[in-house]
Design a protein around this nucleic acid. Structure first.
Lengths: 338, 338
DNA sequence: CCTGGGGGAGAGCCACCGCTCTTCCCCTAC
DNA sequence: GTAGGGGAAGAGCGGTGGCTCTCCCCCAGG
């Protein structure tokens, strides 16, 4: 019952095997009569071309490798969903890999992807060593970084405008009259973390202010909780805090309200980054900087396809504008308009 | 720079092409001397076997197709992560597809997967028509349903024990002395929904009670909110409600507390199903039935591999025990022990 | 009006994509 | 001398694509 080949279809239709191939190859020419006969025979036999065999000769697998980490941060599943759908609609398919966040495993993952002759690699929230970059380059496989950027390396990247996002949050806090302003970040290895903090600090500096408190939460719930306890456990705690991802911001809010009995936003204003769905849930109603996943995905795929079509095209870093979404977790400055 | 083939490696190493193949084929024999020469030449040239070409001849692609829906329910991204990792560790790779929840698109997705010569298909929260089942069967591709079951069809399935899970919740409510008990479900097409409700109802019936209110939330936040407003908008609302997924339960809690000013668990007890991470977050602290994703994943992969190794093995439905995790969103009966 | 030649569409043939696997043969070792 | 390990050769796996060949249509010229 298994494995119907084009040869069998050809026999049944009374044509040559290449005729069958031509019928199933878009852009090849065949007479209506042949097409009809072949289609019918194929239908009866349940024939479908073997994509693997096709890729072998055409050199195009129509597979895109996707490397993901941090699936526990809501932003990534949603981005993944959109990415997959968008690539599917462009006729590509997604081979997915989880990356632990060590170079070791990323290394192996890339190798396995290359083994599958992927036409391109998209990494979500994963950085690449220059060594790996070179290997992909050598194999002629373009790489696009999603929600992460890299200065030195020469691959394309799509991020939100993290710097200006961070800046806006600081301006928002300052306009609301906050004086002791804290920051809870992610992990220094991540460009998102560095840029959000840099933007945040720069706006404070412009206003002649400085950061009153600083901690890193490693992008995890536990890390964020620890950071929050440490930062808010004393009486002269900050009256506003910018948390680098919503995912961590929820944990921070839980600690502030549940453990430290602080009121939000009366005692502390909290702002996050991402605008994942729970941010709009009543229990948190978190003010946050929105990363527009759909736009980011669209740009990522566009960049990828451009690079596949024209391997010589130069890498680009696209920054998507990221607006502040004002909800009730932070004091709203009078007359604030985004 | 592109595409190093085994022939080139063979030339450089001064051996035949087949010798190179043997070196890279686990289980084939070659002398130490040859292995050494070949490995060195391969290293220098950056050679790696082309998996696609290999699959063409061996008939084993080492690809598993994964079809997912409802990625907005936290349970699935986490399951996906575990699934992918587990399959990776078993030497398989995952080609992922998103399924809109109509048969139409599932149909096409299956076709595309079969085109890629996948060795098996895992569907997460997606049912399959008997027509599709037959097609996979005919192509010799085993199917395992994850978190969904199907009576008539003959493929394996892994779920939690939804019936007993639902039953436990009802017993829990009854033991706490609740009298007006409601249920907010998902979507009738889902076996999880039907079984959870059936279990829940059966325990009520055993105690001579009946459901005081019933609504369906379609597994979405908006649907659940609507159901909650409807069920709790009047004064004789239930004093306990079982919501078929945590994801919907959060929405229900938001409506109860934020819109209707009801107190949990004082006015209403809420219990969910899944035990996704936010269930343990302080803002919700939701009592819920735990689906043990790691166990479910492990069984799913085991089943899959067994079926690949021995296609004749008969399909099985594995039900993972699902314990009630007691938190503060529902009244705790005196002396309750799970 | 009929015939011959040019041209183009469409079908068939064959080489090949990169690898595996079986068969065969050679060489070594006992 | 014989057994056995290991290398080489060659036939595919299921397709694609270039080349050739055939056939038919059309038009021009006798």
């Amino acid at each position: 019952m298994d494995k119907v080949t084009s040869l069998e279809v050809a026999k049944r239709a009374g044509v040559s095997q290449s005729a069958v191939s031509r019928v199933f190859t878009p852009g090849a020419s065949a007479s209506n009569k042949t097409i009809l006969k072949v289609r019918e025979a194929a239908q009866e036999l349940g024939y479908r071309p073997n994509v693997l065999a096709r890729s072998l000769i055409t050199g195009k697998s129509r597979i895109i490798g996707l490397i993901v980490a941090y699936l526990d941060n809501y932003f990534y599943p949603l981005a993944l969903e959109k990415l997959s759908n968008y690539l599917q609609s462009e006729g590509y398919h997604v081979l997915i890999f989880m990356a632990a966040n060590d170079t070791q495993s990323t290394d192996q993952v890339i190798d396995e992807l290359l083994d599958y002759q992927v036409e391109g690699i998209i990494t979500a929230s994963v950085g690449l060593s220059s060594d790996l970059t070179a290997r992909c380059e050598a194999a002629g496989v373009p790489v696009v970084l999603f929600n992460r950027s890299q200065d030195a390396a020469n691959h394309s990247a799509v991020t939100s405008n993290n710097f200006s996002g961070g800046k806006t949050v600081a301006e928002f806090f300052l306009a609301a009259g906050h004086k002791r302003i804290g920051y809870i970040g992610g992990w220094e290895g991540a460009s998102t973390q560095r840029e959000r903090e840099a933007g945040f600090r720069s706006a404070l500096a412009e206003a002649g202010e400085t950061l009153a408190a600083h901690a890193l939460g490693q992008f995890t719930v536990e890390g964020a909780k620890k950071a929050a306890r440490q930062m808010f456990g004393k009486s002269d705690h900050p009256d506003a805090v910018f948390v680098a991802t919503d995912h961590m911001a929820f944990a921070v809010m839980d600690v502030l309200r549940g453990e430290l009995n602080l009121h939000i936003p009366h005692d502390v204003s909290v702002v996050g980054y991402d605008d994942v769905p729970p941010a709009s849930w009543a229990a948190y109603d978190l003010s946050t900087v929105r990363q527009r996943a759909d736009l980011m995905v669209k740009e990522t795929v566009t960049l990828m396809i451009e690079k596949i079509r024209n391997p010589a095209s130069s890498p680009r870093h696209i920054k998507i504008d990221s607006p502040l979404i004002v909800r009730s977790s932070a004091k709203i400055p009078e007359g604030w308009t985004s």
